[in-house]
Computed example of a mutant assay.
Amino acid sequence: MSATSTRRPLSLIVPSLLAIAMVLSGGCSNKAAKARAMTAQTGSNCYAKALPTVGEGGLAWGSTLQTARQKSLNNCIRYAGRSGGLPGTCKVVLAECKN
Rank of each mutant, 00 (worst) to 15 (best):
G85A: 01
G43I: 06
G81N: 08
G55V: 04
T64F: 04
C90K: 00
C76W: 00
T89R: 03
R69N: 09
T6S: 12
A80Y: 00
T89H: 04
N74G: 09
C46N: 01
G55R: 05
S11G: 07
V23I: 15
T67A: 14
V14C: 04
C46M: 02
K34D: 13
A48I: 02
T6K: 12
V54F: 08
L94S: 14
M38C: 09
S63N: 14
T42M: 15
E56S: 13
I20E: 05
S2R: 12
M38S: 13
A32Q: 11
A68S: 03
G58V: 01
P87V: 03
Q41W: 09
V14N: 05
P9S: 14
S44W: 13
N75I: 07
C97M: 08
T6Y: 14
L94R: 11
C76P: 02
V54Y: 09
A68L: 01
R69W: 04
L94Y: 11
C28V: 08
K49N: 11
C97Y: 09
G62H: 01
S29A: 15
Q66K: 12
G85Y: 00
G62K: 00
N45Q: 10
P15R: 08
S83A: 06
T64R: 04
Q70A: 14
T89S: 15
C90T: 00
R36L: 11
G88Q: 14
T6Q: 13
S25Y: 12
S83T: 14
S83C: 06
G57E: 02
A37C: 05
R7I: 09
G43S: 05
S72M: 05
T67K: 11
R82G: 13
R82W: 10
A19C: 14
A32M: 08
R82D: 15
G62Y: 00
G57D: 00
K98H: 14
K98P: 02
A33G: 11
A68K: 00
V92E: 01
N45I: 10
R82S: 15
Q41V: 11
R36M: 10
A3V: 07
I13V: 15
N75E: 12
R78P: 04
T42K: 15
R7E: 09
T4D: 10
A19P: 10
P9R: 12
K31I: 12
G62R: 03
C76S: 00
C76A: 03
G55M: 09
E56D: 14
I77D: 08
A19K: 07
A33Q: 13
Q70C: 06
Y47H: 08
N74I: 07
Y79I: 07
N30D: 08
A33D: 13
S72A: 15
R82P: 09
V93S: 08
L17F: 08
L73D: 06
V23M: 10
L51M: 15
T39R: 13
T64Y: 01
P87T: 02
I20V: 15
